[in-house]
Amino acid sequence: MDRTHQPDQQSLTPWDRVQLARHQQRPHTLDYIQGLCEDFIELHGDRRFGDDPAMVGGLASFDGQTVVVVGHQKGRDTRENVKRNFGMPHPEGYRKALRLFRYAEKFGFPVLSFIDTPAANPDKEAEERGQSNAIAESILTMCELRTPIIASVIGEGGSGGALAISVADLILMQENAVYSVASPEACASILWRDSSKAPEAALAMRITATDLLDLGIVDEIIPEPEIGAHTDSESAIAILGERLREYLAYVRTLSIDDLLEQRYIKYRAIGQYQERAQLALDAALHP
């Protein structure tokens, strides 16, 4: 792999990566869309309740073809983060994403999704409007969507709020991005009973790009420039764009039925367990 980072990158702890993944100067979804695509038309609203600024998406031209882009959107400063709710969508955000997935399927456009959220928003209104249902529907839609989907983890992949738009044929993950079942702070407060133990939790949870590649969940680690994407957005965007171009060309050579079969197999295989009967049989056959 073409590694452009400096040697000290290797010595970063998982907690260091969490800091890099959350860096305010890191390029966010709209930076990638604007950097990689032409003729972007942002499409708003879920047609049910409202428009969620924490989730963005629309039509764009990428490498000469029309794609649907969808992603979590964080802000670059406090004012913008308040507007974007720190990239934490409400149900209407996921329902907007779902609408755009169906839109892509209708016209045969591939989907490029960008993952960058601490979590789905946990508040009273989200529960009232069906955060669980919105995430579940989005996951189901991606499972059966008859068009190619490529997800890129570009920052924080936080829990179900990230998974909701990242069920895909291919998952790319930047080298300083993280993807986890819960934020390290949340995990630390549950299992360490102290959220300040987040650095320990971050290590135990195996949340880095290398971990996710080892666990068979992401397909490729995308290198970042220098000591992180925040130091050189333009290069970070270009490196990811190059891989997206190649992968998109590849998935478009597959028939939709083959693609869906492979998507099924990919997710079907995730999980690690023992089959005791099989073990006993093996032991009997090979004492």
């Binding site: 996951i139 179900g160 079942v181 949870m205 099924y264 079907r268």
Partner: peptide, 21 residues
Amino acid sequence: ARQQEGVIALMQMAKITMALT
């Protein structure tokens, strides 16, 4: 999701939903 199985546990959400298709 079971924290001790990390992101593998998270992915079971997609795995089960996939099977339901």
